[in-house]
Design a protein around this nucleic acid. Structure first.
Lengths: 214, 214
DNA sequence: CACGTTAAATAGGAGTCCTATCTTTATCTG
DNA sequence: CAGATAAAGATAGGACTCCTATTTAACGTG
């Protein structure tokens, strides 16, 4: 294998697989959003802010959805027109705003979250072990993307100070969350936990080592 | 936790993970396409048709990219304006067209395929075993989506008449492709092989059983 | 050969998404 | 503390995606 002259083709093929799945995700989003009179981007903003009761700045929302700030301003204006969202001045910084969902916006977000998804249906056909393996792989990818600066910091269990990986070695639910004080398995790991509290960098590194070696 | 009254939350969480990754894919596509003066949809058409020397009908392209036929007509017109693609009448059906890339289109497709991708970079950090597991999971998902009618038929190894799963049990490259007459491992499986020939449904079912039990 | 079906284009409209340019406020320096 | 620099957001302008509904032309069948 000459990794030198050619890049490894496997990551490229895997990326193509993700692209196939992403197309279905987008179709899912169109159908779910369409029923609510929305489009995919608006639906994604609703989904993001549903999990953020304290709201988020327009710039942060743009970063999470990987679009430019002016694009996000378009979408936020559309959502504000539909009375699903409100932008209020940020008391901490007179330049900034905080975007929050209205009651209607939260309701729309809830109905979106429970909408049918062909991807979720396909995922539910995998075995529990496959699902766990897939979730671990996603966590590794998300962490790598985060370290590379490709995405903003996510509220993952593995970077949370409440998380103790492999606290129960050998058991099905091997990890432990000190916040809920319960054992959790690979399948229970969160990608966006509302209770997340960023751990100290050194602690995070140790946690990651324990997690990947478990 | 009442897992009973609610649908299994794991597929939903996995779908969210895919959505995170899909956002990065889209950003990758914007940056790669932007350098070529294109946008993501145009780039996806180029990528699709690069692997289809015989061309595809507009309707088929629309199905592959999960958009409506009129939307695809817009995009094809844009690509034709840029002289990257040509639509010619289909000799077999006077209603239909065949869309094919021009030389410039093929060149643009090639440069797009080799463009940097943050997702591919993250994927290359996974171990070979993890990559193989991920590819197998993708194949299962794609097959499930295909059976559900969510996506058009894909040119997967596992549905090809040249493919013999677990022909070399116990070895690293456990499968065999009769077309290239070589052993191939899980990591070598194709999601869109140009040499694909759809196997007989009964054979496909048997192949799938052998593959999933290996 | 009339009939329903299918492939594609067209019309019309909403809205995403970009870059570039402002305005305002915060922050950093001499 | 004044002035420069940086940052958050809005606005302008333009290309284009994406939808539904409609139209045109050609296929297939009884």
């Amino acid at each position: 294998m000459d990794h030198a002259s050619n890049p490894d083709p496997v990551p490229t093929r895997l990326r193509e697989g993700f692209e196939r799945i992403a197309l279905v995700l987008r179709a899912d989003l169109w159908s779910a959003a369409g029923m609510a009179g929305l489009n995919p981007t608006q639906a994604q903003v609703l989904a993001l802010l549903s999990a953020r009761p304290d709201g988020l700045r327009p710039k942060e929302i743009a970063a999470h959805l990987a679009v430019s700030a002016p694009s996000m301003a378009d979408t936020l204006a559309a959502l504000e027109r539909k009375a699903l969202l409100r932008r209020t001045p940020d008391p901490a910084d007179a330049r900034a705003l905080i975007a929050r969902l209205t009651e209607d916006g939260l309701a729309a977000g809830r109905s979106l979250a429970s909408a049918a998804s062909q991807v979720a249906a396909a995922l539910s056909q995998l075995s529990a072990a496959e699902q766990a393996g897939l979730l671990r792989a996603q966590i590794k990818l998300i962490r790598a993307l985060q370290l590379a600066g490709a995405i903003p910091v996510q509220r993952l269990c593995v970077s949370c100070r409440h998380f103790r990986p492999n606290a129960h070695p050998g058991e099905a639910a091997a990890h432990h969350c000190d916040f809920v004080n319960a054992a959790i398995g690979d399948r229970d790991l969160r990608l966006d936990c509302g209770e997340h509290e960023e751990a100290d960098p050194a602690v995070q590194a140790a946690t990651w080592t324990d997690f990947t070696q478990g």
